[in-house]
Simulated scan of single mutants.
Amino acid sequence: MLKRLFDIAASAFGLLLLAPVIAIVAWQVRRKLGSPLFFRQVRPGLNGRPFEMIKFRTMSDAADAAGNPLADSERMTSFGKFLRSSSLDELPELWNVLKGEMSLVGPRPLLMEYLPLYSPEQYRRHEVRPGVTGWAQVNGRNALSWDEKFKLDVWYVDNRSFWLDLKIIFLTIKTVVVRDGISADGDVTMPKFTGRKP
């Protein structure tokens, strides 16, 4: 209950305090990348229930001659890289937090297609609401392997507390400032999870 009350208060305050920043980022996304402003995608939430996550768009609509989207590395612009490295693209997720679909802290919401690929232990990451930031994000972010990331997610589920959440929020600010672990080696963000065990 304390965690949810903190989420409501912090996300509402954050949306109000950061409204000018959100407005400027929205204007720049519209100017540099066009419409739509937001990237919306259904992701698994608490207990794997789907919800629509919202972020600022960071990629162009570039496609090949057949109309198929180009690879992420070809659609990612310098402006998009800046949004991701600064985590400004994540600001709209405060709305997901206010609605109760996400928490400020928890395992990051991944793709619906990953659900049947998880081992029972990996699936435990869905025992809590997904977060805007999490234990894995402050311990390597996208530079981690999938196995390392899932172990950190499950560790958070087993050890979560209000004080740990505050620590993660503080470490997140530090991580964003130094822009650490933005992408995995050889990838713009993170390679797809295939369910293969190391």
Rank of each mutant, 00 (worst) to 15 (best):
M1S: 14
M1L: 11
K3Y: 09
L5G: 12
L5K: 06
L5N: 10
F6L: 04
D7E: 04
I8V: 14
A10M: 12
S11W: 10
F13L: 13
L16M: 06
L16T: 10
L16H: 02
L17G: 02
L18G: 02
P20N: 02
P20I: 04
P20V: 04
I22W: 12
I24C: 03
V25T: 06
W27M: 09
V29I: 03
R31Y: 08
L33N: 00
G34V: 12
S35E: 05
L37R: 03
F39K: 05
Q41H: 09
R43P: 09
P44Q: 07
P44Y: 13
G45L: 07
L46Q: 00
N47I: 01
G48L: 11
G48P: 12
R49V: 04
P50I: 01
E52R: 08
M53S: 11
M53Y: 13
S60T: 13
S60P: 09
S60D: 02
D61S: 12
A62I: 14
A63C: 11
A63D: 01
D64K: 06
D64V: 01
A65R: 14
A66W: 15
N68D: 11
A71P: 14
E74H: 15
E74R: 15
E74W: 15
R75K: 04
G80I: 12
G80K: 11
F82H: 14
R84P: 13
S85H: 15
S87N: 15
P92D: 12
L94H: 05
L94G: 02
W95D: 03
V97I: 15
V97S: 10
M102T: 08
M102Q: 11
S103T: 06
L104Q: 08
L104P: 08
L104K: 10
V105R: 06
P107L: 01
R108T: 03
M112D: 09
M112G: 11
L115C: 08
L117R: 14
Y118T: 03
S119H: 15
P120F: 14
E121Y: 15
Y123V: 05
R124C: 14
R125P: 09
E127P: 04
V128N: 06
P130D: 05
V132E: 01
T133P: 09
W135F: 13
W135R: 01
A136M: 08
N139M: 07
G140M: 11
A143V: 03
A143R: 06
S145C: 02
S145V: 02
W146T: 08
E148D: 10
K149M: 04
F150Y: 13
D153V: 05
D153Y: 10
V154S: 07
W155Q: 01
D158L: 05
L166K: 01
I169M: 10
F170H: 01
L171M: 09
T172L: 03
K174F: 09
V176M: 03
V176D: 00
V177R: 06
V177I: 15
V178S: 06
V178K: 13
V178D: 00
R179V: 00
D180Y: 12
D180Q: 10
D180A: 07
G181C: 00
I182P: 07
S183Q: 08
S183R: 10
S183H: 12
G186I: 10
G186V: 10
G186C: 05
V188C: 09
V188W: 14
T189P: 00
T189A: 13
M190D: 00
M190S: 11
K192Y: 06
G195K: 09
